[in-house]
Nucleic acid binder design. Structure first.
Length: 283
DNA sequence: CCGGTCACCTGAGTGC
DNA sequence: TGCACTCAGGTGACCG
């Protein structure tokens, strides 16, 4: 599901809709979604004021309480996690299917008084801890800078230091964070680079082109509120960037640049879409 | 260090 | 219709 543009959209939506609102209570319908002890999670967040929300790599960061001295909730949505607004589940039996955690919002309109975490596949996790521990959390998770947080020189250094194939290296969140299967394929196509190329053999010109294309694609995808392939949506509906995909999900169709048939193969364990002519792919 | 495979879960699509 | 099987925006553990 969510990669950088989708997570950014969700974080922006949460910030816009809920900054300054008090969270009166927290209910947990499926404890495994929450890291550690569910009671401790609830105790950390219930009664706090939601200060704002942002994105860290593919994580949604929600800040509570006083600036710098408050609590942060870090949410990783994995494949099917999403946030939406709905009725507060007064008892565990009142949770709607696939809703697992609820945050009761003070002063919200009827039927919208809860922020709900929904996750069909239940791969996602919510973590709550003091905000001062955020740097350590990021370090422990091995989260590298995203494509907007490094320059061409640093990007080149990071990619070429790895021995693996280019697609695998782009998906490595320690090297560069935020790209997932869709935007890795789209960026490689736009840059005319093969997913199976050795990352260590890339030239300055190639890594520079790749970074520029990745940034442009991510920026356009954020403007379109992300890509909805199956069931992703922000707080208010699906994204539209899937309409602009050039290769992802288009196997068997013609390359929009050269007319060659788009192929799909497994690279780095993931379905990988490419134009064999534009990207000079050798499988 | 690297690649491959499975695990975590559920649902949608396909082919028989 | 039903059933078996594959695949899916991600990562993390384990094995060779």
């Amino acid at each position: 599901m969510p990669e950088l543009p989708e997570v950014q959209t969700i974080a922006d939506d949460l910030d816009q809709a809920l900054a300054g609102r008090a969270i009166e209570d927290v209910a947990i319908g499926y404890p495994r979604i929450v890291d550690g002890d569910a009671g401790e999670f609830r105790r950390l967040l219930a009664g706090q004021t939601l200060r704002g929300a942002g994105r860290v790599a593919k994580w949604v960061a929600v800040f509570f309480g006083p600036d710098k001295a408050g609590t942060v909730m870090m949410a990783h949505l994995k494949m099917t996690g999403q946030f939406h607004l709905g009725p507060w589940p007064a008892t565990p039996g009142d949770f709607q299917p696939h809703d697992h955690v609820a945050f009761k919002i003070a002063g919200a309109p009827a039927g919208q008084e809860a922020l709900l975490y929904r996750d069909i596949r239940k791969f996602g996790r919510l973590y709550a801890f003091p905000e001062k521990d955020l740097p350590a959390f990021k370090a422990r998770r091995g989260l590298g800078p995203d494509p907007f947080q490094l320059d061409g020189e640093e990007f080149h250094r990071r990619l070429t230091a790895k021995k693996g194939r280019l697609k695998a290296v782009l998906l490595d969140q320690a090297v560069v964070s935020g790209l997932g299967n869709i935007y890795a394929d789209e960026s490689l196509f736009a840059a005319g680079l093969s997913p199976t190329a050795k990352a260590s053999g890339l030239t300055e010109a190639e890594t520079s082109r790749l970074l520029a294309k990745a940034r442009a694609i991510l920026t356009a995808a954020i403007a379109a509120r992300g890509s909805t392939v199956n069931n992703y949506q922000g707080l208010s509906g699906p994204g539209a960037y899937q309409k602009q995909h050039q290769v992802y999900g288009r196997e068997g169709q013609r390359c929009p640049v050269c007319g060659e048939t788009i192929q799909k193969a497994t690279v780095a364990g993931r379905g990988t879409h490419f134009c064999p002519r534009c990207q000079k792919v050798k499988i």
